[in-house]
Simulated assay, not measured.
Amino acid sequence: MSFAEIIGQKRIINLLRRALAQEHLPHSFIFTGMEGIGKQLTALTLAKVVNCEDGAAGDCCDRCVSCRKAASGNHPDINTIERDGPFIKIEQIRALKQRLRFKPLEGRYRVTIINNAQNMKIEAANALLKVLEEPPAENLIILTAYEITSLLPTIVSRCLHLPFQPLATEEISTHLCQAHGVEPEKAAIMAELAGGSLSRAAALLDEKQLDRRRWLLEIVAGIHESHITDLLAAAKAWKGEGPDLKQDLEWLKTWLRDLFVQQLEAADSISLLNLDFAEKVEGASSRFKPDHLLEMFELVCTVQGAMRYNINKRLSLEALLLLLHTRATDRVGDPRGHLPAQARGPFTWPVTVGR
C-alpha cells in the first residue's frame, strides 16, 4: 500500500508529501479521527515511505526489501504499540525508550506507531512526554487517537496534529464495488450506513450484520402496533454482547435520525441513511414529535455511554423499546422506571424525559 492507494485524506497525504520533499518532517505526529478512516494505514505507509530504498516523489515503491518487510510486519525499525489489556502501560513506554537509545538497524528512521493513544495510563503518558521533549535523532513517533482532547495537552503541544475526516459516501461505495464486487445499489446503502468509516462498511459485508439490522429496524418500524409483552420478548432476543449491541444502538440512532429528517421541510435535499427503509420511515415519522425524537436519541447515547459499566443490558433495552412504544402511540405512561439504577455512573441517568 502506497500513499497513492489510500482512499480519501488527500489533503493530509499532500501535506506529508510536501514535508518529505522539503525534508522538514516533524519528529512526532498525532493522527485523530473516527475508526476506519485511514489513520493507522497512513501511519504505516509513512513508515514505509521514510525507509523505502527506491521510492521517489514522496511515496514508496512497494517493491524493495524494506517495503516488503514493512508490508509483512517484519521490518526491525517499524514498531507498533497496542494496548495491553484495557490500557497502554508504562512498561511499554519504558521499553520504547530503551529502543530509542540505539540507531535504526536497517532503515533511515526508526518509526514507532502508538495506536489508540487515548488508552495510555497517565503514568505511561507522562513517560512518553519525556521522550517527546527530547526526541532522539532518526526517530519518528506517530500517535493515533479518536479525539485530540483525549490526550495530555503537553503531549499535543509537542506533536504535529493532523485531523482525519470521514470518508465520502461515494468513495466508500466505489471501493465496495471495485474491491468486493458489491452491486452499486447495495453498495450505496452500505456506504450511507458506514457513516464515513471504511471498516464499518467492510463489517457490513457480513450478511449476518445486515440481517440483524433489518430485524431491529422491522421491530422499531412496527412498534406502534406491538403489544408490551412482544416488546419485552424482543428485548430478551435483542440482548447481545459487546460489538453487536454497540452496533445495534448505532442502527437505532440512524433510524431516529431518519425520522427527524423526514419531518424537515428540506427533507428532499437531505438523504436518508436507511434508504432501503424509506417507505417505512415516511410512514413512521408522523407518529413522533420532534422533541420526542431528540429525547430518544439522547437516551440511546446515554445507554451507549453506560455500556462501559456493568449495567443490566436487558432492562436498558426494554426501557428503550417501551419509550419508543410510548411515544409512537402517544401514551401517558413513563417507562423510565425500567432503567437500571446501576447504570448511573458519571451520567445523568435517566436523561430528562419531556412530555
Rank of each mutant, 00 (worst) to 15 (best):
R212F: 10
I228D: 12
G181D: 09
Q40S: 14
N116W: 04
L231R: 06
Y109W: 15
A21L: 13
E183R: 05
E35M: 07
R158C: 12
L317F: 12
A95W: 00
V111L: 01
T112I: 14
L339E: 02
M190P: 04
A124E: 06
L272E: 04
T302N: 11
L100A: 05
Q118R: 06
H24T: 15
A237K: 14
D84W: 02
R314A: 03
I7D: 07
S28M: 09
A237G: 15
N139V: 08
H161A: 13
I228R: 13
R110L: 09
K10A: 15
Q118L: 03
L25V: 05
L294D: 07
P76I: 00
L275K: 14
A201F: 01
V332F: 09
H175L: 13
K130L: 08
F102W: 06
L317Q: 10
A168I: 01
K130Y: 10
A57G: 13
G85T: 04
G55A: 14
S316Q: 04
S286Q: 15
T174K: 12
T174A: 15
R200Q: 10
V220R: 06
I12E: 11
G181W: 10
A278E: 14
R213K: 07
L322Q: 05
A235Q: 09
G195H: 04
D330T: 09
T32W: 12
A233L: 12
L176H: 03
K48G: 01
S150Q: 14
N310A: 08
A194H: 00
K289Y: 11
A21R: 13
L128E: 06
A187S: 10
T174M: 09
L272M: 11
D54V: 07
I311D: 00
R11V: 10
R314Y: 04
F288G: 03
A343W: 09
W238N: 01
Y146M: 06
L294C: 09
E23T: 09
D268W: 03
Q247D: 08
N79R: 08
S150T: 10
A145V: 07
E134Y: 10
N274W: 09
N115H: 03
G305N: 10
L273S: 06
P136M: 08
F87L: 08
F288E: 08
A125I: 05
V49A: 02
A56N: 12
A284K: 11
E241I: 06
Q9P: 13
E185N: 09
E106V: 03
L317M: 15
N51C: 00
R314T: 15
P26I: 00
S66Y: 00
K103W: 03
K103M: 11
